[in-house]
Simulated scan of single mutants.
Amino acid sequence: MQASILLVEDDPEIGRIVRDTFLRENYHITWATTGLEGWEDFQEMAYDLVLVDLMLPEMDGFTLCKNIRLKSDVPMIIISARKEDEDKIEGLQLGADDYVAKPFSLAELKARVESHLRRWRRYKGAPKAKNESAYMHGLAIDWDQRQVMLEDEKLSLTSLEFKLLEVLAKHPHRVFSKKELYEHVWNQVEADGAHTVTVHIKSLREKLRDPVKAPIFIQTVWGQGYRFIGELL
Rank of each mutant, 00 (worst) to 15 (best):
S4E: 01
V8G: 02
E9G: 00
D10N: 08
I17R: 15
I29M: 05
T33K: 12
T33E: 08
T34I: 05
G35V: 10
L36E: 14
W39C: 02
Q43W: 11
Y47V: 14
D53E: 12
L54N: 03
L54Q: 05
T63F: 03
C65T: 14
C65F: 02
R69Y: 09
K71D: 13
D73E: 12
I79S: 02
I79K: 00
A81G: 15
D85V: 11
E86C: 02
E90I: 13
G95S: 12
K102I: 07
K102G: 03
P103C: 02
F104D: 05
A107F: 13
E108M: 10
V113I: 11
R122H: 07
Y123R: 13
K124C: 05
G125L: 06
P127M: 04
K128G: 06
Q147F: 05
E151N: 15
L155F: 03
L160Y: 11
E166F: 03
L168A: 01
V175M: 08
K179V: 15
Y182T: 11
Y182Q: 09
E183C: 00
H184F: 15
V185G: 06
N187R: 11
D192S: 11
T196M: 10
V197Q: 09
T198Y: 06
K202S: 15
L204N: 09
E206N: 05
L208K: 05
K213Q: 04
G223P: 04
Q224P: 05
R227F: 04
F228N: 02
F228Q: 05
I229M: 12
